[in-house]
C-alpha cells in the first residue's frame, strides 16, 4: 500500500504558491502594445492617447472586479472621480508633486473602496449593483456640494508640476510617457493578480461561491480584497486623468461614467486580459472622432452596445480568443 498518510507535504496549497509565469502569447501581446504605445505619440495627438490609456486602466480595474470577481458594480465612477478630485486638490491647493498627488488620489479611492466594499459585498447580483450605484450617487452629490470640489465648475487649471520635483510634465509629450508607464504598470499588476493563487480563488468564487466556502475559504474577504484593489486601480486611473486634463469635474463621478466603463469592458470582452484595453480604445476613439456629432455619439454607442450584446456577447477580444482557441 503506497498511499501512506503524511503529516508533511512537499506541495503548498494554492493560496501559498507562486503564480505561473506569463504565457508567450501574452508576453508578445504586451510587448507589441508597449511598442505601439511608445511610437503612437509620434503619429497621434498625445492628449487623446493619454485619455485612451487612463480609460484602459479604468476598464481593466473594472474588469478585475466584474470579469474575475464576478461582481457587477454600477458605481465605479465614485473611485475614479473621487481620486480625480483628491489628486487635483492635492496638486493645486496643497502643491504636491504629481506622483504624490496621484498617490493621494489612489489612496482616497482605496479608502472609499474599503468603506463601500465592506457593505456592498454583503449582497449579490442586482442588489450589489444597486448598493454600489447608491453609494456612487452619494459621492456625486458630495462632490456637487462640498466646498473644495468647485461645484459645477470642478477643479480647473490643475498644475501638472514636476515629477519627483525634477521632470517638467507640462509638455504633453513628456507627460504621455509618464502616463504610459503608470497605465502599463497598473495593467501588468492586474495581470499578476489575475494569474496569482489569489486570482484562482477569485475565479472559483465567481463560478461557485458555496463550493469555495465549503472548501474552507472566507469568500467575503476575497471579495472585499478584489473590490478594494479594483477601486484602487480605478482611482489610479482617475487621479492620472486629472493631471492629464488638468481638471476634475462632476463628469468623473457621474453615473454615466460608471455606465461607460461597463460598456468598455463588455465591448472589449469581460473576463479577458486585453478586452478592456480594446474596449476603452474603441469607445474613447469614437467619442473623440465623432465629437462633432454631439449627442448622436451616445446613440451610436448604444447601438454598438446592443449589437455587441446580441451578436458577440464575449466582446471583441472574447470572440478573437474563441477563434484562436487561446485565452487572451
Amino acid at each position: 500500500m503506497a498511499v501512506d498518510v503524511q503529516t508533511t507535504s512537499n506541495v503548498a496549497p494554492v493560496a501559498q504558491r507562486g503564480a505561473k509565469g506569463m504565457s508567450t502569447l501574452h508576453m508578445a501581446i504586451f510587448a507589441a502594445l508597449l511598442v505601439a504605445g511608445l511610437i503612437a505619440p509620434f503619429f497621434l495627438y498625445p492628449v487623446f492617447l493619454m485619455k485612451v490609456l487612463c480609460f484602459a486602466l479604468f476598464a481593466c480595474a473594472f474588469n478585475l472586479l466584474l470579469g474575475f470577481g464576478g461582481l457587477l458594480s454600477f458605481g465605479h465612477a465614485a473611485y475614479f472621480g473621487a481620486a480625480s478630485y483628491v489628486a487635483a486638490h492635492a496638486a493645486k491647493v496643497w502643491g504636491l508633486t504629481p506622483e504624490l498627488a496621484i498617490l493621494a488620489g489612489t489612496g482616497a479611492a482605496l479608502i472609499l473602496g474599503v468603506l463601500i466594499g465592506s457593505l456592498a459585498i454583503r449582497r449579490q447580483g442586482i442588489y450589489f449593483a444597486m448598493v454600489t450605484l447608491a453609494f456612487a450617487q452619494m459621492v456625486f452629490f458630495f462632490s456637487l456640494q462640498a466646498p473644495f470640489t468647485g461645484g459645477e465648475d470642478g477643479i480647473q487649471a490643475v498644475p501638472r508640476g514636476h515629477l519627483f520635483g525634477l521632470l517638467n510634465l507640462r509638455p504633453d509629450f513628456t507627460l504621455y510617457f509618464v502616463v504610459l508607464a503608470i497605465t502599463f504598470g497598473g495593467i501588468l499588476f492586474i495581470y499578476r493578480i489575475i494569474h496569482s493563487p489569489f486570482g484562482q480563488v477569485l475565479k472559483a468564487i465567481r463560478e461557485n461561491e458555496p463550493r469555495a466556502i465549503s472548501l474552507g475559504y472566507r469568500t467575503n474577504r476575497y471579495k472585499l480584497a478584489v473590490f478594494v484593489l479594483s477601486a484602487g486601480f480605478a482611482g489610479l486611473a482617475g487621479a492620472t486623468k486629472a493631471l492629464v486634463f488638468q481638471l476634475a469635474s462632476l463628469t468623473d463621478v457621474h453615473w454615466t461614467m460608471s455606465g461607460e466603463v461597463v460598456l468598455m469592458t463588455l465591448i472589449g470582452g469581460m473576463g479577458t486580459v486585453f478586452g478592456p484595453i480594446v474596449g476603452a480604445t474603441v469607445i474613447v476613439t469614437m467619442q473623440n472622432y465623432l465629437a462633432t456629432w454631439g449627442a448622436w455619439v451616445t446613440i451610436v454607442q448604444g447601438t454598438i452596445f446592443v449589437i455587441a450584446v446580441l451578436l458577440f456577447r464575449e466582446g471583441i477580444v472574447g470572440v478573437i480568443s474563441k477563434w484562436v482557441k487561446r485565452p487572451l
Binding site: 503524511q6 507535504s9 506541495v11 472559483a204 472548501l215
Partner: peptide, 25 residues
C-alpha cells in the same frame, strides 16, 4: 471549477490539517 485547470482545481482547496495526501500519492 470550469475556468481553472485540473492542476489549479487540485491545488485550490486550502490545507485544513496536516496529514493530507501529497500530489504523488
Amino acid at each position: 471549477f470550469s475556468s481553472l485547470s485540473v492542476e489549479e482545481n487540485l491545488m485550490l482547496p486550502p490545507r485544513v490539517k496536516p496529514g493530507g495526501l501529497s500530489l504523488d500519492q
